[in-house]
Structure formats: structure tokens, C-alpha cells
């Protein structure tokens, strides 16, 4: 049996959701019998393969133009897109800056913070441009499954992936695996 290809990536997140995915512990061995992780931020290959994957997983909020590109590329290259964690689903902690505005947040962080000496707001062309509004992934691409939680519980990942492997879509998370915090 050919393995199902899964690619993951993160946007404006903290990597906590990926850590929680690893918290499925020894079940990952069983999962790898059926699944091939083609790429992820914690492996050498960072980008989902051009030929595409079945499942794409995104952690983190849409915070800058780079996040938008990554999300769009993942959407193009996967059949089923899963947004994981409160940032990817609701905007999460990065969305707190919506309350004061991007410019004020940048000023505070890079110019006004007590520890700053000769501060400068980074504007290298290599960096993504901060957006005015931080949003969940669903604002820029179509998402097939949302798994909220900060982080989502390991069992929620296990449940969603095994349901997909069993051919059941849409996956409806049972109440005990559905959590906002």
C-alpha cells in the first residue's frame, strides 16, 4: 500500500502545536506505517513537494505577506488542509496586536521597549510585510478541518489523522477533543 503523504508548515505560531503532534508518542511509529511526512519545519525538506500531498497541516496565524504565500502554496499542493491550534483557527496570540494596530505594535517592540538601544524596525526585502490585520488561516485559503486548542491535544491529532486514513471526511471532532485552550 502506498503511504499517504502529509506535509506540515508553520506560520505565525510558536511551534507548540507541532510539539503536541509529537506528543502522540509511540503511536507515531504506527502512524508512519501508513503516512509519509514529506516536509515540515522540523525536517530538512521545508516545502511541500510540487507533485502535491494528500494532507497539508498549518500551524500559526496569518500575520504577514510571507504567511499568506506559505498558506497559499500549501493549499495548492494539498487535497485536505487542516488548520491546527488557536492561532491558525482564530488568530490566537498574534491577533492581540489587532487591538492596537500593527504600526503601534512594531513601534513598541522595536523602538520603544525599555531594552532597545538605537532601535530600528526591520524592513529587509527578504522579510514578509506585516499585515494590518492578523487572522486565522481560514481568512486567506479554504480550510477543510479546524482543530482548535492551545495547543490542540495529541489525541485530537491522532483522531483526525486516523479518521482521514479510514477514509472518513469530513472529520467531526468529538467534544472531548475539541478545546479552546
Amino acid at each position: 500500500m502506498t503511504k499517504v503523504k502529509v506535509a506540515t508548515d508553520w506560520l505565525a505560531g510558536c511551534a507548540g502545536c507541532h510539539m503536541s503532534l509529537l506528543d502522540i508518542d509511540e503511536r507515531i511509529v504506527k502512524l508512519l506505517e501508513a503516512v509519509e511526512f514529506t516536509s515540515s519545519p522540523v525536517t530538512d525538506l521545508k516545502h511541500p513537494p510540487k507533485e502535491g500531498v494528500t494532507v497539508g497541516i498549518l500551524e500559526g496565524a496569518i500575520c504577514n505577506s510571507h504567511n499568506v504565500e506559505v498558506a497559499k502554496q500549501m493549499r495548492e499542493r494539498c487535497q485536505i488542509l487542516i488548520a491546527i491550534g488557536d492561532c491558525a483557527t482564530f488568530g490566537g496570540i498574534p491577533a492581540m496586536r489587532n487591538m492596537c494596530g500593527t504600526q503601534e505594535a512594531l513601534n513598541r517592540a522595536y523602538l520603544e521597549a525599555e531594552s532597545v538601544v538605537n532601535g530600528i524596525i526591520p524592513d529587509s526585502p527578504e522579510l514578509g510585510k506585516p499585515l494590518d490585520m492578523v487572522t486565522g488561516v481560514g481568512e486567506v485559503v479554504k480550510v477543510d478541518l479546524f482543530i482548535p486548542g492551545c495547543p490542540p491535544r495529541a489525541n485530537a491529532f491522532w483522531y483526525a489523522l486516523t479518521e482521514l486514513l479510514a477514509g472518513r471526511t469530513p472529520v467531526i471532532l468529538p467534544r472531548e477533543l475539541f478545546t479552546y485552550d
Partner: peptide, 26 residues
Amino acid sequence: SGDCELQNLGYRYGIDHWVYPTYTTP
């Protein structure tokens, strides 16, 4: 969180992402 009636309703009706633009006014 955990004892909120609004949150309980969110769970009950599966509100797993925002449909409308979120709050920006503190």
C-alpha cells in the same frame, strides 16, 4: 474558561473558527 456559558455553546455548536472579522476595538 471551562465555566463560561458562551464557551459551552461554542463547544455545543462546534464553533471552531471565526466566520466574521474579529474584534479590533479594545
